[in-house]
Nucleic acid binder design. Structure first.
Length: 853
RNA sequence: GCGGGCGUGGCGGAAAUGGUAGACGCGCGGGACUCAAAAUCCCGUUCCUUCACUGGAGUGUGAGUUCGAGUCUCACCGCCCGCACCA
């Protein structure tokens, strides 16, 4: 028996598609456009399974929409700046540019072997000056429009490497390479004013109907709009006041302390005269800048000795603590603590023996005996122990406090956001240079547009400690564009989220001399379907939404939302294996099945402990290299596996058995066409006047499958679409009579067309073997014959008291009475009713009949 | 710590709007073909009970709403993702 030669077929069709430029996109006002985009990869070396999944999903959408008549734009590029290139430079003494370009060459070749329908002529690489010069121009425009500014902010500083560390490079408060305790340092850095759009970014979320609800919710929480009160506490023995922010002004009478952040100006001032406080502040700073690290640390505080005066309760003094859980970046960097109604404050109060005074009484509680235990009370109630607020609701009390403080000049209502401005400065080499010059006389001077791009030097020393651009002997030396005197270039580069915040627009006119052509972005944008990992739910997606607004404000384009539709895919997981004794992680290829069915090490024969399926990662040794799969089974098999079984937004378990199953199906399909069971009629033969009963059933099933698969693809239920095609395949295999030749051809052609977006090489091969001279890639999607979709009888379930007792076949849309009598006639129903009086019969037409006795 | 999500057979997963739980696949069991194996094909496969019919239980756990709950409500348990310098 002949086998499907995928190696030959896949290369053959890839070549044909490329030669015929099947996937080249150009603007065409007469056809509806559809822009499909997958998140472009960081060129880390080789593609991984996550890429295979992401790009399989995108390619399916692109090919499907193309078949449906859309003018499809489907581009690919490289998010090529980033930290790993610098790490590789340090570890392997290879230049980041060379390393990156090698990786891109490898990965491009790998992606091409998957048969993805990209318009490769639009490929962009973000580390190319032809790309990044445009974002330097954008930055200058942002500066001009007040969207970029400079301020001091905190970074993780490694004193040994003399470098700023990313949060992921800080492990237990130490630098990952040096092991030295990390210090927090303040540096002047560039920021983009994303908070200027906070309200708009929040409100427009609602209109993003084709985004997953959870992503919208996460962004909403991230922006974190809150309506509260800025209030000012007089400080005993000092002239200045302490500003705090609160959303719970109603609990002011329950306040028993104030707390300020470790790097609050007041804390720093007091620390100068208090060595213990200085030590405590230093201790807080060792936690680094990550919010998770700060918030998970045990609640610690230091009593500064200062006393804040309660604004209403005369003579009541609140101790002022420095506390490690108060963030300088949020609100005023200071709070008042009301332990009874805030869990963090409660834990802090218990630890330091502070009073816990309940001021909101739950609806069903008794005022005299009510006390707080281990849990703060957060809900509504009536206010108690609060002088003039007593008896009010929480909302009424908030309003009253705001009113009184405002009148007294001790507070004013304020809307604040959790969202902070986007810090874009990075003290790194492998990023886009920030195009400004620092001049002793003129201050900060933008690099003139004519001098762009500011290019990275090729000869930076990447191994010496510190920032390579800062260390470079000549690169930063430049004459001030303003006064002409010697000055210094900015030596920071952009955050790499900068590049990914506008690449979708660059793809519209990737070779344009400007960032993009207005006509092109007007035609192609917004992206109709964006596909990528859920891990980007907030940062990348929010930055891109902001960037688009900023570009609009600067006149680059006319839209504010870059992505109309979003699909977030799940991760790829795989079983994990460990040594039974040592607990060492083992590679899947070193694990084999023993004769008794247990798993053992392939070379040593030692028993292996099987762990649960976890996200593929190098540290757990549970990665499977997609190249090995593509080499052994072909791209179509790998693609099919990615689409079957798991819905795209859920995690996918990689299993060897699953890939074998996909492989079997690929071969089965091929055999059905290579060795058809019945003689097929010629291409384009008209439908015979009458079909055999089996053929008639198959004919209806074919059209139902077309309708169902189309609906499933529209809803991204790819796993269900695969299941439906398999069902049709099973049915077609039962056709073998000579009179079925016409329907068999209809079925096989339909299958080929339906799997076209999933397994494009196999589909082309089938199409050709079925006698077509056209390309399936250029063939339209099949249409279902509506008249074949409706059944005239339906199976209706019959329940007695909610328990299934049988089914009846009924004409579609039978009336209540005939349905009821048919149901009551069933033997099983008679038995279950057992002569009891029927109280009620519920009839849901064409679905269910429930007899209640 | 905060924010978001997920939980259905041995396994991955199906079940618009509350209406026949388990489509499709994997695995497993039995059979056919074969000297044998591979490949392929056929039958079966939620669990308990039964030769079978039948009956009972069942969607992480516990309550609730309903004629009817995988789906809605509340509480709990477990796992996963993000937290602003990884991308």
């Amino acid at each position: 028996m002949e086998r499907y030669n995928f190696k030959e077929a896949e290369v053959k069709w890839q070549t044909v598609w490329e030669e015929r430029r099947c996937f080249a996109a150009s603007e065409d006002a007469d056809r509806p456009k559809y822009y499909v985009l997958e998140m472009f990869p960081y060129p880390s070396g080789r593609i991984h399974m996550g890429h295979v999944r992401n790009y399989t999903l995108g390619d399916l959408v692109a090919r499907y929409k193309r078949a449906r008549g859309f003018n499809v734009l489907h581009p690919m590029g490289w998010d090529a700046f980033g930290l790993p290139a610098e790490n590789a430079a340090k570890e392997n003494k290879v230049h980041p540019a060379a390393w990156t370009h090698d990786n891109i060459d490898t990965m491009r070749q790998q992606l091409k072997s998957m048969g993805l329908s990209y318009d490769w002529a639009r490929e962009v690489t973000t580390c190319d000056p032809e790309y990044y010069r445009h974002e330097q121009k954008m930055f200058l425009d942002f500066l001009e429009h007040g969207l970029a500014y400079r301020k001091e902010s905190w970074v993780n500083w490694d004193p040994v490497e003399k470098t700023v560390l990313a949060n992921e490079q800080v492990i237990d408060g130490r630098g990952w390479r040096s092991g030295a305790p990390v210090e927090k340092r303040q540096l002047a850095q560039w920021f983009l004013r994303i908070t200027a759009f906070a309200d708009d970014l929040l409100e427009t979320l609602e209109s993003l109907e084709r985004w997953p609800g959870r992503v919208r919710l996460m962004q909403e929480k991230w922006i974190g709009r809150s309506q509260g009160l800025r209030m000012f506490f007089a400080l005993k023995g000092r002239g200045d006041r302490l500003e705090v922010y609160t959303t719970r002004a109603d609990t002011i009478f329950g306040a028993t302390f104030c707390a300020i952040a470790a790097n609050h100006p007041l804390a720093l001032e007091l620390a100068e005269g208090d060595a213990d406080l200085a030590a405590f502040v230093a201790e807080c700073n060792r936690l680094g800048t990550s919010e998770a690290a700060i918030k998970t640390a045990g609640k610690e505080g230091y009593d500064t000795g200062l006393r804040a005066l309660h604004p209403f309760a005369r003579g009541r003094e609140l101790p002022v603590f420095v506390a490690n859980f108060v963030l300088m970046e949020y609100g005023a960097g200071a709070i008042f603590g009301c332990p009874a109604h805030d869990q963090r404050d409660l834990e802090f109060a218990r630890r330091y023996g502070l009073d816990v005074v309940p001021v909101v009484l739950p609806p069903d509680a008794d005022a005299a005996s009510y006390a707080i235990g281990d849990e703060a009370y957060l809900d509504d109630g009536s206010v108690i122990n609060s002088d003039f607020l007593n008896g009010l609701s929480v909302e009424e009390a908030k309003a009253e406090v705001a009113h009184r403080l405002n009148a007294a000049g001790a507070g004013k209502p304020a809307v604040i956001y959790r969202l902070r401005d986007w810090g874009v400065s990075r003290q790194r080499y492998w990023g886009c240079p920030i195009p400004v010059v620092h001049c002793a006389d003129c201050g900060i001077v933008p690099v003139p547009e004519a001098d762009l791009p500011v290019r990275l030097p090729g000869d930076a020393d990447l191994e010496a400690p510190g920032n390579p651009l800062e260390n470079h002997p000549t690169w930063a030396q430049v004459d001030c564009p303003g006064c002409g005197k010697p000055a210094r270039r900015e030596t920071d580069t952009f955050d790499t989220f900068f590049e990914s915040s506008w690449y979708f627009a660059r793809f519209c006119s990737p070779r344009a001399d400007t960032a993009f052509l207005r006509d092109s972005v007007d035609y192609w944008l917004p992206v109709d379907q964006y596909i990528g990992g859920i891990e980007h739910a907030v940062l990348h997606l929010l930055y891109s939404r902001f960037f688009t607004r900023a570009l609009k404000q600067c006149g680059y384009l006319g839209i504010k939302e870059p992505f109309a539709g979003l699909l977030t895919q799940g991760m790829i997981c795989h079983e994990t294996y460990r040594d039974a004794d040592g607990g060492k992680w083992l590679y899947p290829e070193d694990v084999i099945g023993a004769q008794d069915g247990s798993l053992v090490h392939a070379t040593t024969g030692a028993p292996v402990t099987v762990g649960r399926s976890e996200k593929m990662s190098k540290s757990r040794n549970n990665v499977v290299d997609p190249q090995a799969i593509i080499d052994a089974y072909g791209a179509d098999t790998a693609r099919l596996f990615m689409l079957s079984d798991s819905p795209p937004d859920r995690d996918l378990d990689w299993t060897d058995a699953g890939i074998d199953g996909a492989w079997r199906y690929v071969n089965r399909l091929w055999r059905m066409v290579a060795e058809p069971k019945a003689a097929l009629v010629a291409v384009g033969s008209p439908m015979p006047g009458d079909l055999s009963p089996a053929a008639g059933t198959a004919h209806r099933a074919i059209h139902k499958t077309i309708a169902n698969v189309s609906a499933d693809l529209d809803k991204f239920h790819f796993n269900k679409a695969v299941a439906r095609v398999r069902e049709l395949t099973n049915l077609l295999e039962d056709l073998d009579g000579a009179e079925d030749g016409w329907v068999l051809r209809e079925g096989l052609e339909t299958v080929a067309r339906l799997i076209g977006p999933m397994m494009p090489h196999l589909a082309e091969e089938m199409w050709q073997r079925l006698g077509h001279e056209t390309l399936l890639a250029e063939t339209s999607w099949p249409e279902a014959d509506e008249s074949l979709l409706e059944e005239d009888t339906v199976t209706v379930a019959v329940q007695v008291n909610g328990k299934l007792r049988g089914t009846v076949r009924l004409p579609k849309d039978s009336d209540r009475e005939s349905a009821t009598s048919a149901a009551l006639d069933l033997d099983n129903v008679v038995k279950a009713v057992g002569g009891r009086p029927v109280r009620k019969v519920i009839v849901v037409p064409n679905r269910i009949i429930n007899v209640v006795v």
